[in-house]
Design a protein around this nucleic acid. Sequence first.
DNA 1: GACCACTGTATGGTCAGACCATATCTAACA
DNA 2: TGTTAGATATGGTCTGACCATACAGTGGTC
Lengths: 232, 232
Amino acid sequence: MDGTGWRPVKRTRAFEDVLAQIERRIAEDGLTAGDRLPAERHLAEQLGVSRSSVREAMRVLETLGVVSSQVGRGPDAGAVLTSRPDSPLTDLLRLHLGLASLEMREVIDARHMIEQWAAAHAATAGADTSGLAAALAGMDAATSAEEFVEHDIAFHRAIADASGNRLIAAMMRSLRDSMRRYSVEAVQRLGDTSVLRADHVRILEAIGRGDRDEAVRAVSDHLAHAYPSLFR
Amino acid sequence: MDGTGWRPVKRTRAFEDVLAQIERRIAEDGLTAGDRLPAERHLAEQLGVSRSSVREAMRVLETLGVVSSQVGRGPDAGAVLTSRPDSPLTDLLRLHLGLASLEMREVIDARHMIEQWAAAHAATAGADTSGLAAALAGMDAATSAEEFVEHDIAFHRAIADASGNRLIAAMMRSLRDSMRRYSVEAVQRLGDTSVLRADHVRILEAIGRGDRDEAVRAVSDHLAHAYPSLFR
DNA sequence: GACCACTGTATGGTCAGACCATATCTAACA
DNA sequence: TGTTAGATATGGTCTGACCATACAGTGGTC
């Protein structure tokens, strides 16, 4: 004991204080996407820290998809609150895949779970399937694996968006984006995409007529065809 | 036209270069959790940028749960690669809930999806249920809603961990952490927790005897009891 | 030899101040 | 009225300094 009072292990860093203050203000003032934060120099003065610390906090918020910074002057300049949960999720997954702290198997399992959920909800909600049809046409017209995958992504993305849950849709987009390269390789390895095409048609039709169970089965079969090595 | 050649809209910022370089090195050198990054000053010199820019990149990586920084000297000091997808996910969800860019309904739907998946896989895998039983005992002994929720979180977390998918388990933990406050209110509003207890016992037993379908149903019923206002 | 206190040093954390690039605003001017 | 030139506020970057921390070494003491 030192008799001077006690200090817990962790000192909070200056930028963490800034983060907490900003988060508090967001909650208290009810700030939402589109609202502006004070300029870095003003925040630094108000909070009694250096501009560097404010900037580090800004980087964190930007990384989390909560603010976006523009230079210059005027109503659109400075740090503006945004709402982009996708790109942080994508970065997160990509980096952790790179670090080998996640295996592709786990990512594909997660995708399986989300795709089934989204297809079921899209079918139940009687979603508009014109976007799906357009993506399908894009796949038919594709002349390279990369191009095919782009439209494939658009197809599955449309299902997720149609599910009506923005969080789950964001997860879906991030998963798909972070495994884009792997998908291209999978398509190249497969060579023939006619099986995938048939799967897509089956999914589209099941959703179109609101057949939930068939939509779920179709998605499941589709993933098994696309990544045969990962399914027993 | 200015005749001097053309410049695309977006200039990359210095810290973004640093990020790209570090990510490249992680991929090329096959760095994984536990490996150290060069010191900030060295990185700054190697990459030809200021230390501030390196620090901003570090904040980003730290936010994404990829590095962790320690001061001091020795083998454990400096920036060390880590693997914590949980805390970034939690921060992400908490901030976006605060920003009202996500609704609680969406978060609970996502939780529903993940809980069902995890319960099904835990049941199929014949998971050890001793952790679940311990959490159940903790809930029985709890004397406040906060305490109850802590053990409740532990219970559901154990199911997610038993599913064998680290990504999905991380999603589960993050979802649950970000809605901790809401859970406490829900328990207080409910008053009597005997219904929840019965649900937990039912889930535990279904997983214990490997009854996948019953586990899924039990989880679904449980969430309906816990958040009655969000289920039709 | 074993232990302990002191000093050195590499690390991240923080700050102050300067300058640049950019985008808008303002006022003078034609 | 339209245009242009300057003023200004913003983020982006750099430099250099100093602090706090925690280990590495060094030397002394027992």
